[in-house]
């Protein structure tokens, strides 16, 4: 074999290996579906409680394409995003403001930590008292939990800004306002994005819980609990699956935006 053909065959090998590596995450998924399928057909579990993965996926696809699952899906997505945007619009400015003054942050640190440690679902009854069982109530409680995460992360981003960059800006003649807008704000962005990403995740979690607990016309949380009540297990599993898929893609979306926008992160 000539040197060049060895090299090119190496390259093909490397290329196909890289391709194969990209498929690795699928192995876990296939394994889960395999185990699920084996248990479902083995008869260990009552088939009324556990449909096969294929039947579940079938329900998911027909539900999304023709059935009533799509409106539920859209309602949940809309609530999640409204909650997230409310939280971000209020949380980022407050977080940055808190982070810019150590005294201010220390004054509110305990409060933020306390409510961050309180399970948001424990506050749902309180929110019902204030806002009733309206749609707004579900959005507000989700926004509240996301808000805490966003505030805390934005503040941390500002607090942990590199002193040397602040000093560099000062020595170049930047006044306090320019240091804030040219350095502090941008320094805090990577951490702020971590807060935003956690914020959208918690928004989805709380929206689903609120839909189950408070009740609603449409929404995946309600769909899951309703399907369980009438033992429509195929629909229940399909709804759980679509909720998971939604959560996963929300996270991916935020990671992508972060990577494009905060190009310097970790460099």
């Amino acid at each position: 074999m000539t040197a060049s053909s060895v090299r090119s065959s190496n390259r093909i090998q490397k290329f196909s290996l890289a391709r194969a590596d990209q498929l690795l995450p699928l192995i876990g998924v296939l394994a889960l579906f395999g185990v699920w399928w084996l248990i479902a057909i083995s008869g260990f579990v009552n088939p009324v409680l556990l449909p096969t993965p294929i039947a579940t996926l079938g329900t998911l696809i027909t539900g999304m394409l023709t059935g009533t699952m799509l409106p539920d899906f859209i309602a949940t997505v809309l609530r999640t995003f409204s909650a997230f945007f409310m939280a971000a619009a209020v949380g980022v400015p407050i977080g940055v403001a808190l982070g810019s003054s150590e005294k201010l942050y220390r004054s509110f640190e305990f409060l933020i930590d306390f409510f961050r440690s309180t399970p948001a679902s424990a506050l749902i009854p309180m929110f019902i008292l204030f806002f009733g069982v309206s749609d707004f109530s579900k959005v507000v409680i989700a926004a509240f939990s996301a808000f805490l995460l966003i505030v805390f992360n934005s503040a941390y981003g500002v607090i942990n800004a590199k002193q040397s960059r602040i000093l560099a800006a000062k020595v170049m003649g930047a006044n306090r306002w320019r240091v804030f807008k040219d350095v502090l704000l941008l320094e805090s962005l990577p951490q702020t994005f971590i807060g935003l990403r956690s914020g959208i995740s918690i928004s989805l979690v709380i929206v689903i819980v609120a839909e189950m607990f408070i009740g609603t016309e449409q929404g995946l949380g309600k769909r899951i609990i309703d399907a369980q009540q009438v033992l429509n297990v195929k629909d229940m599993y399909a709804s759980i699956l679509i909720t998971g898929i939604l959560g996963y893609f929300l996270n991916m979306l935020f990671l992508l935006v972060e990577k494009r926008f905060i190009h310097w992160s970790g460099k």
Partner: peptide
């Protein structure tokens, strides 16, 4: 005065292009 820091990585602004970094003192 001009000041060159020991650690360029921590004193440059990574969110600005090299050009904008150089022009920063003038813009300020």
């Amino acid at each position: 005065i001009g000041y060159v820091f020991q650690n360029y990585r921590d004193s440059m602004f990574p969110w600005m292009s090299a050009y904008d970094n150089i022009a920063y003192p003038l813009r300020v």
